[in-house]
Design a protein around this nucleic acid. Structure first.
Lengths: 345, 345
DNA sequence: GCTTAGCACTCAGCCCCACGGAGTGCTAAG
DNA sequence: CTTAGCACTCCGTGGGGCTGAGTGCTAAGC
C-alpha cells in the first residue's frame, strides 16, 4: 500500500498546514496551497484515500482533515525536511553551555535551553550510576553520633548523606576508615562496591579489624539506599505548556503534571530512548502513557568521551514544528556531549 | 465600628458554610444554620450591615454572600476556633519525619507531608547561609585542570562545585591547600569568609605562600557564586492544586505555576514570615502578589537547637479549612524543629 | 424599636432553536 | 481521470424564554 507521489505531496502540505494553523484543513485550502493545479474535488478524492489508510481523519462530517498519529509518523519518517539550525543559534547554545563547569548544572542548563528555545518542556535523563566508578569516600564528623559521608564517583558526581552512628567516632578514626575504604574499593563500579559491602556485612564482624568494621558499617548505610544509584530526571519549563493551545485544557495539563511529578513514566520513556542511537521521536500514544496522549517527545542521547551517559529531549504537543525541534535537540545533545567530554583546554 | 455578637455569629457561620460548600450563602440557609431563631428577613438586615462593612460581598444581585478578604481576616484573627490535631495524626507526622536523618531530605519530607495531609501545596524555605558557620573545605582532583570543591557548614549542609583550574594540581597540594584553608577559616561565618577571601585576592599575590595562593584562588571561585549563599525554596504537591475547585482555572493555575517556577516571590513572602514568631497567614492579595490572588499561605518558622532556621508552610485556596490547616502547619514545624535539633539519642 | 411576612424584582444558568459558514460526498459531464 | 454542481451534514453562535435562588423594601405585628 504505497502512496502515490501526489498523495505524498498532499499529505505533507496538509500536515505542514495543520502544524502551522492548528485547524482542520479543507480541500479548498489544500488545493490552493499544494500548487498542484488540481480542483478541490480531485483533492477530496485523494483525501478520501488518505483517510481510508488511516493517515488523516475528519473530526466530524463538515470539518477539514487532521493528521492521525500514523500520519505524523509517516511524516516524520519520510516526508519531513529538516531545517538546519542557524549558526547564530548554535553559537548561542554553545555559549550558554560553556558557562557551566559543574556537570550537574550543565545538564540543568541544557534542559532549560531546550525549553527556552522550543517554548515547550525540556527534559534530561541522568541515568543510574550502576556503572559509575567509585573514586573516593570521605567521612566528616558533624555532631555526636552523626557522620557526614561524601561519595565521589569518576564522572565528577558527588553525593552526601548524614549517617547516624551508634557511637562517637574520633576524627582520626574517620580518616582511617575512609582511607581503608578508598584503598580497598577505588576504581570499582558502584554496583560491585555495593555487592562487596553486603558480603562483608554478612561475615562475622568479630573477625574484622576495627577500622574495617567502622568503614564497612558506615558505608553500608550509605550504599544501602538504592536511590543513590537510581536514575534521575530533570524537567524544565513545564509551565510553558500552559501556553500551548493544544494542551491548555485542565484535564490534559493535570495528567501531564501528575506524570511529571511522579517521574517514573518519564524515566522509563527516556530510558527506552537511551538504547537507540540518534534522535528518537515518540508521537502521542506511542510512548504508551495516557498522559502523553497529545504530546510528542523528541530525544537524543548524549555522551562524554564516547561513553553514553543519558538523554536530553523536548516534550511538546504532537502538533509541533518537528523540522525545527529536531535539530535543536540534536545540536544541544552534541554540544552537551562536547562540553562534558572536553577536559577544559 | 464593632460587631454585635449576633453579627459575629452570623459572619462566622457564613464563612464556615462557605468554606465547606464553596457556594454563596443565602439568608435562608444562614438562618437555618445559625440556630439563632431568626427569620431570613432579619438575617438579611444583618447581612446588609456586614456587606457595608466590607466583610462580605454578593457576586451579583440574586446570589448569596461570600466572605471578602477582610472577612476572612477578621475570621482567622478572632472568630476561628482551631481544632487540635488528632494524636494519631501527630504520631504519623512524627514517624515520617524520624525516618529521615539527612537534613535536606528531612525538609523535603516535611514539605511533602504538608502537601499530603492538606492536599494543597507544601513549601519550605531554607534561608541563606550568610550566618552559617564554615566548618570544612575539601578539594578532590577530578581530571586534569578540574578540581571538585566540597564545602561543609556547621548545620550539616554540603555543597560541591567543580572548579576549572588554570593548571594541574598534585593531590598533596590539594590536601595542603584545604588544610590551610580549614585552619584559617574554621568557625568563621560564610559571609565573613567571603569577605576575607575578597580581601586576600586584592592583595599582591606575590607576597603569599604558594599553598595559600592555591587555596585562596580555588576557594575564591567557590565563594564567588552568590547562589551558594542564597536562600532556597522547596515546593511539593503543586499538582494537587489542579484539584482545588477554586483554583482550577487555566489562567489562575498558569500564574501560580509561573511564580512557583521563578520562586523569587515565594522566597520574599516566606522570608517575611520568617521575622514573625509563630503562625503567619497571608490571605489573598495580602501577600502582595497577583498570582496568589485566590490563595492563602499559612506558615510557621522552624528551628534547630533554638536557632531560627527557616519556614514551612502550605499554599492553598483562600477558601481553605483554616482550623485544620493551621494546626497541621504548627505541629509539622514543631516536630521538624525537634527532628533537626535532637542529636539522635 | 426590633422582628417578620409578603411581594416585586433581579439575575445567572439552562435549554431550545434558528441560522450562517465551512466542508464533504456524490453524480454526471467533459 | 478530472471537474463543476448540488444536496447534505454539522459545528458554533446568538437570541429568547423559562426557572430557581435570593435580594431589598415595605408594612404590619410584638
Amino acid at each position: 500500500m504505497k502512496l502515490t507521489e501526489r498523495a505524498e505531496t498532499l499529505l505533507r502540505t496538509l500536515i505542514e498546514l495543520y502544524i502551522n494553523q492548528g485547524q482542520p484543513v479543507g480541500s479548498r485550502t489544500l488545493a490552493r496551497q499544494a500548487r498542484l493545479e488540481l480542483s478541490p474535488a480531485t483533492i477530496r478524492n485523494v483525501m478520501s484515500d488518505l483517510e481510508e489508510m488511516g493517515l488523516i481523519h475528519a473530526p466530524h462530517t463538515s470539518a477539514g482533515r487532521v493528521p492521525t498519529q500514523q500520519g505524523y509518523r509517516l511524516f516524520v519518517d519520510s516526508l519531513l525536511q529538516i531545517k538546519p539550525l542557524q549558526p547564530s543559534a548554535v553559537e548561542e547554545i554553545e555559549d550558554q553551555l560553556s558557562n557551566e563547569t559543574d556537570p550537574q548544572a550543565l545538564l540543568g542548563k541544557a534542559s532549560e535551553l531546550l525549553s527556552q528555545i522550543t517554548q515547550f518542556a525540556g527534559v534530561v535523563l541522568i541515568p543510574g550510576q550502576q556503572n559509575a566508578i567509585f573514586r573516593q569516600l570521605e567521612f566528616v564528623g558533624l555532631a555526636p553520633n552523626r557522620v557526614l559521608a561524601i561519595l565521589i564517583t569518576d564522572d565528577g558526581r558527588v553525593q552526601n548523606r548524614v549517617i547516624p552512628t551508634d557511637r562517637n567516632y574520633e576524627p582520626n578514626e574517620l580518616v582511617e576508615a575512609a582511607n581503608f575504604f578508598n584503598q580497598t574499593y577505588g576504581g570499582v563500579s558502584l554496583a560491585d562496591v555495593r555487592r562487596a559491602l553486603l558480603n562483608e556485612m554478612m561475615k562475622d564482624s568479630d573477625e574484622m579489624h576495627l577500622i574495617m568494621k567502622n568503614a564497612v558499617t558506615m558505608a553500608g548505610v550509605l550504599f544501602d539506599r538504592e536511590e543513590d544509584i537510581k536514575s534521575e530526571v530533570m524537567l524544565s519549563g513545564e509551565e510553558k505548556l500552559f501556553n500551548v493551545p493544544d494542551l491548555c485544557q485542565l484535564e490534559k495539563l493535570q495528567r501531564l503534571f501528575d506524570t511529571f511529578k511522579t517521574k517514573q513514566d518519564l524515566l522509563d520513556l527516556l530510558d527506552r530512548s537511551l538504547r537507540v542511537t540518534g534522535i528518537s521521536i515518540f508521537i502521542g500514544d506511542e510512548s504508551g502513557y495516557q498522559a502523553l496522549h497529545d504530546c510528542s517527545v523528541v530525544t537524543s542521547p548524549y555522551e562524554a568521551d564516547g561513553v553514553l551517559l543519558g538523554t536530553v529531549g523536548v516534550i511538546g504537543p504532537t502538533r509541533m514544528a518537528y523540522e525545527e525541534v529536531i535539530p535543536v535537540v540534536d545540536v544541544t545533545a552534541r554540544l552537551l556531549s562536547g562540553a562534558l567530554s572536553a577536559p577544559t583546554s
